[in-house]
C-alpha cells in the first residue's frame, strides 16, 4: 500500500519537476506556458495524494485554468519566430542562478533540520473528511484579517491596471 503511494508520488513529482524544467528551458514562449500547465497538473497531483481535493481542483482552476490562460493570451501579440531567435537567457542569468541555488540549499538545510522522513513520502497526513469546510472555517474565523487584506491588495492591483491602461486615452 505504502509502496504504491510512493510510486504514485514519484510519478507525480516527476511530472511537476519535468514541467518546471521544461518551462525554464523551452525556447518557444508558448511551449513554456504548456510546460507550466504540465507542472501545475503535477502539483495538483501532489495535493490529491494528500487527499486535499479542494486545493487540488483550485490549483487546476486558478493556476492551470486561469492564470496560464491569461499568460498565453498575451502571447497572441508575440511573433514566435522572432522570439525563437533570441538568446535563451537574459544577461543577469548569473544572479538568478546564485539566488535559486541559494534557495535550493536553504530548502535542503530546512529539510535536514526538520528531519523529514523520506519513507513517509506520499503518506496522507491531512485531516480526515471534508477539508473544504475546515478550510473555510479557518479562513473566515482565525485568518479573517489576512484574508481581507489579500482581497484588498488584489482589488488595488485590479484598479491600478485599469488606471494605467486608461491614462493615455482621456
Amino acid at each position: 500500500m505504502t509502496s504504491m503511494e510512493a510510486i504514485i508520488f514519484a510519478i507525480v513529482s516527476l511530472i511537476a519537476v519535468v514541467g518546471a524544467l521544461g518551462l525554464v528551458f523551452a525556447k518557444n514562449p508558448y511551449h513554456s506556458a504548456l510546460w507550466m500547465v504540465f507542472s501545475f497538473v503535477g502539483l495538483a497531483g501532489l495535493l490529491a495524494l494528500l487527499e486535499a481535493y479542494f486545493l487540488t481542483v483550485l490549483q487546476l482552476i486558478v493556476y492551470a485554468g486561469a492564470i496560464v490562460v491569461m499568460i498565453a493570451f498575451v502571447m497572441m501579440t508575440i511573433d514566435f519566430r522572432k522570439v525563437g531567435g533570441l538568446s535563451k537567457f537574459v544577461p543577469q542569468w548569473l544572479w538568478g542562478l546564485i539566488i535559486s541555488f541559494g534557495i535550493l540549499i536553504d530548502l535542503f538545510i530546512l529539510a535536514s533540520k526538520m528531519k523529514i522522513d523520506v519513507s513517509q513520502s506520499g503518506k496522507n497526513l491531512a485531516i480526515a473528511g471534508s477539508n473544504t469546510k475546515a478550510l473555510g472555517m479557518e479562513l473566515f474565523t482565525h485568518y479573517l484579517f489576512p484574508f481581507e487584506l489579500v482581497a484588498i491588495i488584489l482589488l488595488v492591483a485590479l484598479i491600478g491596471v485599469v488606471v494605467l491602461t486608461k491614462r493615455e486615452i482621456k
Binding site: L34, V37, F54, V57, I61, A66, T132
Partner: peptide, 26 residues
C-alpha cells in the same frame, strides 16, 4: 466520486480551452 465533483468538472472544462488556444497559436 469525489466530494468536490463540481469543482473537478469546472477545472477540466476550463483546461479544455487550451485545445483551441494551442490550435490557434500553432
Amino acid at each position: 466520486h469525489v466530494n468536490v465533483g463540481i469543482l473537478y468538472i469546472l477545472a477540466a472544462l476550463g483546461l479544455t480551452s487550451y485545445g483551441v488556444l494551442s490550435a490557434g497559436i500553432a
